[in-house]
């Protein structure tokens, strides 16, 4: 195991968990290797941490925790690029923006999820331009909406 200094501190890197973004991600085009870190104190927020730059760590989350009926459409080209063979290969994460001093205005980018193939270690931030999702959904509103959906569902089935 190799030790790497990152924005969230020194990490021991398990090679198998490194995710390679062949084209970088928008805004960080020159960075290739990242790792998804789960920290007890920030869970359910995870960190997409750059192994190339000690200044870059992006908060991400399982989007279904925020929007229960979220749908991701992965285009054929991405399936090829990431060598996705089945659902079990996939890990989907969405980028969070948490404004300093104003957590209530936290937003989630549902238009451009991070798609990771856990098996091949390849990742990409895809852009679902015509999905109807935006890049700045307010998290508090989405949680409210999801709760309502869950409640309606349990009332209808129960």
């Amino acid at each position: 195991m190799e030790k790497v200094m990152t924005k969230i501190g020194e990490l021991e890197i398990d090679e198998e968990k490194v995710v390679r973004f062949e084209k970088g991600i928008p805004g960080f085009e020159s960075l290739r290797d990242f790792i998804v870190v789960e920290k007890e104190e920030s869970y359910p927020i995870l960190w997409l941490v750059s192994l190339d730059s000690p200044n870059v760590a992006i908060p991400v989350i399982d989007p279904w925790l925020i929007r229960v009926d979220y749908t991701v459409d992965i285009d054929e080209e991405t399936v090829k690029e990431l060598e996705i063979e089945g659902m079990e290969d996939l890990r989907i994460l969405a980028v969070l923006v948490i404004p300093v001093g104003n957590p209530k205005d936290m937003t989630i980018n549902l238009m451009a999820p991070i798609v990771i193939n856990k098996r091949t270690g390849k990742g990409k931030q895809i852009i679902m331009e015509n999905s109807g999702y935006g890049i700045r959904h307010k998290v508090v509103d989405e949680i409210e909406r999801s709760k309502k959906i869950m409640k309606d569902m349990s009332e209808n089935t129960g």
Binding site: V56, I58, P59, V97, I98, V100, G101, I127
Partner: peptide, 15 residues
């Protein structure tokens, strides 16, 4: 705008 969001995300503060 996705680029901007990613850069904003990097400045996030966990409180």
């Amino acid at each position: 705008s996705i680029k901007r969001e990613n850069i904003e995300a990097m400045k996030s503060e966990l409180t």
